[in-house]
Amino acid sequence: MFRFSNPKKFQELSDNVYPWMNFLAFIFILIGLYYSFFNSPPDYLQGETVRIMYIHVPSAWLSLMIYSSMGICSIISLIWKHTLADIISRSCAPIGASFTLVTLITGSIWGKPTWGTWWVWDARLTSELILLFIYLGHIILSNAFDDFRKGDKNAAILAIVGLINLPIIKWSVDWWNTLHQPASLTKFGAPSIDSVMLFPLIFMALGLTFLFVSILLDRIKGEIYLRKIELFKQEID
């Protein structure tokens, strides 16, 4: 498992994977966008606005997935003190924050025609907003120190404390009476979404995941170089 935890080995691996990720992201998002705009039917109730779903739902999934990977990396970095885990969780945070912001903005654009309001203080919406704030707090805390190692450790603690929010977001629609609809894909038994709409949704989700991985690999590369420069500066001083 830790064979690739050496930054140099990881760099070699990521250099090989990076172009493939870009290629896959491009292809999947292209197919997903084509199907979601031109080859899927409008909803019988919501009409054409249902197409917002193909960007709203995948980015919401990603915002949760990125935070949980940040939490896992933080646990690894606190227990085994791997530098790479710190680097990954630091590079994840801005990407996750942007996906959360996309989720909130598209959700409020979708909410105006369907619910009649841009924003309600609803359990799902509020917990997603808290997730955005936690991402921003993580970014601020990891950059608040002169020595980046201290920033990494304290930001890891913040990320672990914030993990409590994930199950609240996931089950908020079941625990409270909310305006937001409950999960329609991960129910027991068959999903309550038709395969015509499910197909572009899956494609967009995979495409955005590959996009996330490719941006992440790019950011990790930059972060490793930054740390090398930082260590070099400390040696000179």
Partner: peptide, 9 residues
């Protein structure tokens, strides 16, 4: 900024 998100609930 760091504490307020945890205060909201």
């Amino acid at each position: 900024l760091i504490i307020i998100p945890f205060y909201i609930p």
